[in-house]
């Protein structure tokens, strides 16, 4: 699949520590696996919420 997608490099992002470390891919990558999934699907993450709450509350 990655070979097939090589021509769409800028429109493909590879997610996750092990995945990024093990697969041959020179396009965009994210260090997040579960966190990236959560962000892509829900638009947020627990730490981002905590940082925003922290900024609001102090």
């Amino acid at each position: 699949m990655l070979t097939r997608l090589a021509g769409a490099r800028d429109d493909v992002v590879l997610l996750g520590g092990d995945t990024v470390a093990e697969l041959p891919w020179s396009g965009p990558t994210s260090t997040g696996g579960g966190s990236a999934l959560r962000y892509l699907a829900e638009g947020g993450c627990a730490v981002l919420d905590a940082l925003r709450d922290d900024d609001d509350g102090r």
Partner: peptide, 15 residues
Amino acid sequence: FSKAHRRHASTTGLL
């Protein structure tokens, strides 16, 4: 960022 979805002591606990 890889742990940004975790509510752990070193993430949200610390914050």
